[in-house]
Design a binder for these strands. Structure first.
Lengths: 64, 64
DNA sequence: ACATAATGTCAATTATATTTTACATTATGT
DNA sequence: ACATAATGTAAAATATAATTGACATTATGT
């Protein structure tokens, strides 16, 4: 399932997928795939994304 | 750095590394490596561990 | 309508998470 | 002291995250 919370948090920061990719040091396709949802990123990457978007792991990647 | 919160949460459930490994479907060494800290597990594995230990991602894997 | 930025997606390659096997060490109980 | 469960750790193999390059599509602005 898509990660719309991440997409929204990125939009709130006015960052393109490419911008965020450069900020966290991965490729644009990796960011795209994570938002698309058919993906299993590493926790370190998730943490880096959270920090750039001023969110926590629970806010972007946890679901009850 | 070691993940002592995960180690504590596992102890609180009275589970050995091997028990937890079987519950989340990975090898004991993977659990050991995560607790040891020199590791970068995938988010899906982190989520599976959290659910078995009744904790959230922030509680076990986030640091301010 | 046109130009350009942003996004979606695919195939092939590279980097690395995870497994497997194996052995050593540290607890814990009797 | 002995036995056994639990943990720490290492090397080699396998599975998969992530990269690279490329092209198509969808916004957005002028």
């Amino acid at each position: 399932m898509k990660n719309l919370r991440m997409k929204a948090a990125r939009a709130a920061k006015d960052l393109s997928q490419d911008d965020l990719a450069k900020l966290v040091g991965v490729s644009r396709q990796t960011i795209n795939s994570i938002e698309k949802g058919d993906y299993n990123p590493t926790i370190n990457l998730c943490i880096a994304i959270c920090k750039e978007l001023d969110r926590t792991l629970d806010e972007l990647f946890w679901e009850e």
